[in-house]
Nucleic acid binder design. Structure first.
Lengths: 352, 352
DNA sequence: CTGAAAGCGCTTACAG
DNA sequence: CTGAAAGCGCTTACAG
């Protein structure tokens, strides 16, 4: 008759000391096996491995790190988890890091909270901190200064123009220039800009690309474009696009093409235009930006710009992981990624 | 003339010992301030706080945890980061945990990798592990057994029916029953099921709800429903919905209502139906599930079911955080969340 | 292979 | 308030 005691689960092992006692080996030996050091009998290794599997013992990572072992953790500071392109970047980065043996510590930092997030990352001795999204510039710049002062590597994905920041960012100007060139080739000469009104802060901004594409053809920006952004507060992008489209329909002279800041605005505008009886692209053309899934769900499908997220993230990860263990560079690393125009059904020849 | 040395950044402080030396206090005193212990002069506290801000010193969390301080980390194991409802759950959970002082360690676990993920969480001594999404049942059950054996709390969000699992899950049966009742009240008696063919594994599955709503009216499930799921391999849900819709149009007798497994399938079907010249809801009605943003972007908007994600996640977080520090319960905690029918423009009276 | 020992950066009594 | 000391769970020489 088996003793009832034996059927109880083995009491949880919490340290290599207990574990070594359990296997009947010295702590030192166990540690060697765990760290894959040479000069051990195959039998010993197997014995430890089996006991490891049986007991489920997981050595305390905190103690390992205390003894100088790298944490293999990367802090990822997200603007939010609400925008699909941002989430896709996160998902891709997490996957790449995991494949290289790094864990992702993910925090979302609403304005004003980045300081606490970064402090937490620092206290956990992450090997680098990645920022994904668009933050208050002064706030990230201050965080980057702190990280650098502490000797911790950082990288910013997709916010261009931060002082002292290592940056991998989409060349949005090139994306918009491609959109504009496409529309210009279709004969369009008057453009309704949807949600593009913010002054460009860098040469990689959307507006810079719109301007340069027009100027390359000798066209005047102010004469060719109309923006009604000021008439509506920017809310949910979809509704915003819808409202803007309606406003444009009330104008005496209507642009032949509408250039959306992103896909949501474009889809909203599409719905607004169609609800008013306009046919896209026969009556007007329309473009988005980001190449999200929703671009395929509309009728017609949306002409848009793909961010090449895979390239962005692998470029970022490759550089970052190569930097680990090396001293911080004085000169920021800055790389821009080329976008790709995706032509859908929403753009066609300008109506004469 | 200031010495050039002075303008250099202060060398990085890496321990409370160095920091205490820097401030001119004992290590013990610094530790007391850092931990907010009583019996300290206000002046001392201020002195430490200021030096903390100036130097940017962040005490080593690993050492703190080694000394028994809780890690305040929760491991979150995601099925993927590709489905919007899953990401929304993650975002909500992360926000709630953060507000309560917990950090989120997020990992994505494709099939076959959950073991490594959980081991990593265990080695970092997380206080609990949350699974979000749908996993291979045997795999999660094994992980849950391991966690329980190690005395670590777990919680599964949205996968019902796992043995021994603490679970907070949407009552999808109730959601589908609400959809069906809505359609039945509109006079529909024949239903095309889109992507619903998997046998129900629990009484909270969609199919269970469809069946029960029909039976409550004395209608026979097999006589009232048609499924063509077997004709297409399930790929991208959008295209799948489109393909299924096309297949239904080839039938001699067409259902008057289509019930989608999720919003993507429904939107795809909507586009497929409309492309074939059908009007929704005049000719046919159509419903989705999940109440994602895309439901508002179609014409007409989609009737769908809201998951009440906020309720799900706060229920989960509240229970979980209340359990911390208490011994693991033998009896699993199981809670279902009631969904909410959202009536859009895609459902209307059955065509006689 | 074993065992005793030192030390990583903290916290926490304990005696001044 | 200070200072010396022990100990958390590891790793790593070092001497057997």
């Amino acid at each position: 008759m088996p003793s009832p005691r034996q059927s109880k689960p083995a009491s949880v092992i919490r340290s290599t000391a207990e574990f070594a006692r359990h296997v009947g080996l010295a702590r030192t030996t166990v540690s060697r096996v765990l760290n894959g050091q040479p000069g051990l009998k195959p039998k010993t290794i197997e014995r430890v491995q089996r006991a490891l599997a049986e007991t489920g013992f997981a050595p305390n990572a905190h103690a390992m790190h205390l003894k100088g072992k790298r944490t293999s953790m990367i802090g990822i500071c997200m603007e939010d988890l609400a925008t699909p392109p941002g989430v896709r970047k996160l998902a891709t980065l997490q996957r790449v890091l995991r494949a290289r043996g790094f864990a992702s510590l993910i925090e979302v930092a609403p304005p004003g909270t980045a300081r606490g997030v970064v402090r937490h990352f620092l206290s956990l001795r992450v090997e680098a901190v990645v920022f994904i999204g668009h933050f208050v510039p002064e706030e990230v710049e201050a965080r980057i200064a702190e990280l650098t002062a502490q000797g911790t590597l950082h990288l910013v994905i997709d916010q261009f123009g931060l002082r002292g920041a290592n940056t991998v960012s989409l060349d949005r100007a090139a994306g918009m220039a491609a959109v504009m060139t496409h529309l210009l080739e279709l004969g369009h000469r008057s453009f309704g800009l949807l949600g593009q009104s913010k002054a460009p802060v860098s040469r990689y901004d959307r507006l810079t690309g719109i301007r340069s594409a027009l100027e390359a053809r000798g066209l005047d920006f102010d004469a060719c474009t109309v923006s009604l952004d000021h008439l509506h507060e920017r809310r949910n992008d979809f509704q915003y696009g819808w409202d803007l489209a309606k406003r444009f329909l009330a104008l005496p002279v209507r642009p032949t093409a509408f250039v959306g800041y992103n896909d949501e605005i474009a889809v909203g505008a599409l719905r607004g235009l169609q609800a008013a009886g306009l046919r896209v692209p026969r009556d007007v053309s329309l473009t988005g930006f980001n190449h999200q899934d929703i671009c395929l769900m509309t009728e017609p499908t949306l002409t848009t710009v793909d961010q090449n997220i895979e390239t962005t993230v692998t470029t970022a990860a490759d550089w970052m992981l190569a930097q680990l263990g090396q001293p911080l560079r004085a000169k920021p690393f800055v790389r821009t990624i080329e976008p790709r125009l995706v032509i859908g059904g929403s753009t066609g020849p300008a109506k004469p």
